[in-house]
């Protein structure tokens, strides 16, 4: 009985999702017919603006799925873009910068794991520590006057890059973009279809059930939080070494917090978060384009406000309705006696 109902709901959901997909495609097609240049530009910028948010949201998903609330994503982004930029600038080599960004991101993950998993510190405070440490370190050691030799070049994928619309939007991007998108897809399958994913989700929901099944809760938590940190490092590298090419104090500009909203909006599902992030990116890209085309005249600060306003709106509407991993935020301790 329950099974039948679930199946029916699922098929309705599936058809609903398909309808939304068709509507989006239809809207893009209409816009493309009316003004192909602007449409391509908006779509491409949606990905550009959305990708770092999506990638940062993956950090949050990997951590919360294992029961660790990570509000230190902002710190991870800031630290890794700092190290990515300065190592690349000093060595005049982007690859060293990339490695430094990933390593420093992983280090913030390791710090968070140490504080929350081993020392069982309050996870919000631990995340705040990561953030404050990142702000302090990167401001203190920041020096003006350095520059990168170049940024990561765009790679056109032969064949695919020639597809109208999609080619320009998706297949003429930088290496980190490709890797990030692939990682998000892989993470999706890994979470829902591999033993690692099942164990991870079990730990995020009910850690003692994993522990009593002979799974090392500690090891999986550590692994996931550190890998998430490394991926956050890659996100930082994307920002400095592929997208912007420079670094400033407070460079991450709240993206790590917006990512948490996106994680919730996407219901802790990598694909959901990717779509949510592209939606955030789209809102910003659209506003930018409307201004460039002279169709509307919105003062710049209001456009820059958009991600934060959207974050508030999304959280206001989804709060209380979505259910995250049940054990997120609680340190795991074996019951005594």
């Amino acid at each position: 009985m329950v099974g039948v109902v679930t199946k029916m709901t699922k098929s309705v959901m599936r058809s609903k999702k398909t309808i939304y997909l068709y509507l989006v495609i239809l809207a893009i097609a209409i816009a493309y017919t009316i003004n192909s240049v602007s449409t391509v530009a908006v779509a491409a910028s949606s990905i550009t603006f959305g990708l770092p948010l999506a990638m940062a949201a993956m950090v949050g998903i990997m951590c919360e799925r294992t029961g660790v609330v990570n509000i230190g994503i902002e710190g991870t982004l800031l630290t890794s873009s700092f190290f990515g930029f300065f190592v690349a600038a000093l060595s005049q080599n982007l690859i060293w910068g990339l490695i430094a960004a990933i390593a420093s991101g992983a280090a913030t993950g390791l710090l968070l794991a140490l504080l929350t998993v081993s020392w069982k510190m309050d996870q919000i405070i631990a995340g705040t520590i990561v953030n404050i440490l990142a702000t302090g370190l990167t401001s203190f050691f920041y020096k003006q006057g350095y520059s990168l030799p170049a940024i990561f070049p765009r790679w056109s994928i032969p064949g695919l890059a020639e597809i109208p619309f999609l080619g320009r939007v998706l297949f003429q991007s930088g290496p980190i973009t490709y890797f990030g998108l692939i990682f998000i897809l892989v993470l999706y399958f890994a979470i829902y279809h591999t033993p690692w994913g099942l164990r991870t989700r079990a730990i995020g929901e009910h850690p003692s059930s994993a522990d009593t099944s002979g799974i090392s809760v500690l090891r999986i938590k550590y692994t996931n939080v550190v890998i998430a940190g490394a991926f956050g490092g890659l996100t930082g590298a994307y920002l400095t070494l592929e997208l912007v090419g420079s670094f400033d104090r407070g460079f991450s500009a709240g993206k790590g917090f917006t990512a948490l909203a996106i994680m919730i909006f996407g219901r802790w599902n990598p694909i959901g978060a990717l779509l949510a992030a592209v939606f955030f990116g789209f809102a910003q890209a659209l506003a930018n384009q409307l201004m460039i085309d002279g169709l509307v005249n919105i003062p710049g600060p209001f456009i820059n406000m958009l991600p934060y306003v959207l974050t508030i709106v999304v959280l206001a509407f989804s709060a209380g309705k979505v259910r995250g991993p049940a054990a997120a935020g609680q340190p795991y301790e074996r019951e005594k006696a």
Binding site: L198, R201, S208, S209, S213, G214
Partner: peptide
């Protein structure tokens, strides 16, 4: 068989049974 069941409430019967030995 634990007094407080060691089952993940949001997962299926099958997923709970195979956990740790999938």
């Amino acid at each position: 068989v634990h007094q407080h069941f060691q089952l993940v409430p949001v997962m299926s019967v099958t997923e709970n049974i195979i956990l740790g030995d999938e």
